[in-house]
Design a protein around this nucleic acid. Sequence first.
DNA 1: TCAGAAACATTCACAGTCGAACATTGAGGC
DNA 2: GCCTCAATGTTCGACTGTGAATGTTTCTGA
Lengths: 383, 383
Amino acid sequence: MSPEQPADAAGKSLFSLQRRERLMEELRAHGAITVRGIAAKLGVSELTIRRDVNILADEGLVSRVHGGATLPSKLDRSAAAGRLAQHSYSIGMVVPSLDYYWPQVISGARAEAEEQNLRILVRGSAYDAADNRRQVQALLDTQNIDGLIVAPDMTGDQGQELLRWLNALPIPVVLAERRSPIEIPAHRLEWVATDHAFGAGMAVRHLWQEGHRRIGCLTDSSSPTSPHVVRGWQQALAALKIPLEGSVYEDSAKQENGERATHFDHVLELCRNAGTTAMLVHSDTQAVAFVQHCVDKGLKVPGDIAIVGYDDEVAYLAEPAISAVRPPKQYVGKVAVQLMAARLAEGRMRPVHRIELNPELILRESSVGAPQAPATGMVEVPQ
Amino acid sequence: MSPEQPADAAGKSLFSLQRRERLMEELRAHGAITVRGIAAKLGVSELTIRRDVNILADEGLVSRVHGGATLPSKLDRSAAAGRLAQHSYSIGMVVPSLDYYWPQVISGARAEAEEQNLRILVRGSAYDAADNRRQVQALLDTQNIDGLIVAPDMTGDQGQELLRWLNALPIPVVLAERRSPIEIPAHRLEWVATDHAFGAGMAVRHLWQEGHRRIGCLTDSSSPTSPHVVRGWQQALAALKIPLEGSVYEDSAKQENGERATHFDHVLELCRNAGTTAMLVHSDTQAVAFVQHCVDKGLKVPGDIAIVGYDDEVAYLAEPAISAVRPPKQYVGKVAVQLMAARLAEGRMRPVHRIELNPELILRESSVGAPQAPATGMVEVPQ
DNA sequence: TCAGAAACATTCACAGTCGAACATTGAGGC
DNA sequence: GCCTCAATGTTCGACTGTGAATGTTTCTGA
């Protein structure tokens, strides 16, 4: 044998550290290794491997066994086993907004990260695939990121391409408030998202229980949340046997500020014609403006028209205060970090997790007729 | 066989630590083991197993009994037992089978419960809503249950009624391998389930990559898993632009034992007529029988027909060994317990979680192209 | 209660593995 | 060049894990 560095099967020289890395790799791949097998594979003597195993075992990275080593096992009670090396990780987080909705998600993520002893680096981005990618790339380039939590724009070809790119990244990726669509098998992407359809359904059922029989929906198609809200609204109508035909359904996304009042008038006109007495209004900034508009026009809320908002960011500020579906934003961040921490700890043996969280319905004045006992499962919050 | 490391059923060498780990796993899955059974399963002498049991018993991890071992019991007052921290909560677990699929789910749940210091009480039930309810009721009556993990039968009115009842129970309930349907708003029920549709799709895409252009599906509609598998198969066909019309799709549930051969012949006939060269066979007991039948009829697997099974319980036993989609059964149990532990710790402020896990595809001989002869001029090196 | 069967403990033999002591090699500093 | 040091290899006696044989204990059912 050559007197230089030892060689592995491919003929490449290895330093001891690389060798131990290789050893861990084999170990992770097979769950166990034999000293003999690895020695042959790496082209070094068995004694060398044994020494490596001892070193790794001292650090608690493997469990020593007669003839080889296994992944650390609870059954192994040697000195070093027990407390895994607290190698702390850094997680990048890219969110599409730093002033609406996402601050709470970030706050939940930060709290959990502290708990799990992780570092989080947050970057804001635009609602736009190209910028998402730029921000992620910046994190990858400048920081030493071990994992990525991201809420990308998924619309259009660019969005799809972005997803594919994320799926192929060498680090684990968790989507927040986004789901990878079935069409592209982004099989490595995990996600945690609020079940907005459920939230919308909950709002509709609540309005039904309040006696409303015609329930419309005013949505904001510029938000990624919108399709889910609309779907939930439609499903709930179907379940309650309310015909979709004739139910007011409007999109306020394209309205300029100046034209908003005009559009609201148009919506109210539709409601009057269709006999609609309740509206689910997506994005509660919209809801606030809409309630304001109704009050200005002399309509009683909830007397003439009941309103439920969506997101519960500013709904309590309106006069009257608006009932709203509240997504568990803190938990979205928290669970995303939990997913990431578990993934980083357990590696690829862990199956891909995809988590939906249910929002809750916060009842305020805008939808509750006479003060009633809250329906089961729904929370009444004063203020 | 060589006098070196012993072998388990799959022929893989095991170190003593791994063997004990396996032993604990079996123990968690079944609650008890026999020395003889485990020795046969792991391919070692009974003496060795006894020694393992002694070691584990010294650690207090098992209770020794004549003929085998059980999970640590309070009744066992040997030296090592006894100082287990008192269980904070007790969780009831009702599963529809104790010999197929579910033992591994239970094993994962037990392992996690141990970790979280919870007590788990497992009861088997029938695939039948009335019996499910009886078993749950029995747990509620006789034990002091703080939470319930259950895989109920959800078919028919009885199933729906059962779900409603579960939803109204005063303790938290987590469904395992079941989803609450949107129709009944069982908004308190959390669940963890394998994404079987994804698994089926993975199998279809694999077969496509192996060159198959007509891919059929043989399902077992008596299993609650069946609809999801079929849905995944259909979606994957659609994505690959394989027409659903003319694709072989058969249900083997209603076949009596005697008629199974006839039905298989019928399926093969259909395959021949439709030009189908690959089948996804749900429940891999079915797959094993089907492969056996094909081989008996002189068909080459995978040469004439490629097979992928579903569940990966016994697929490796067939000759040739069958590729199979493997649901993360251990993790289903594990995650269910995690959900329950978090719920018990955090109370109702925690949003309802609903988790899907991706299965993995285990490739074996039945679907992977036959090994090809080396190109001319190349020398095949023995060993 | 007792007999027979099954499970268990003990002993021994052996193959394989381990690690201490010492030898060898190569890199880097002077 | 020479020295030192760290990494690796070789040898060989000690140790460990396993299984067969054999005797002892425990369980079970009549």
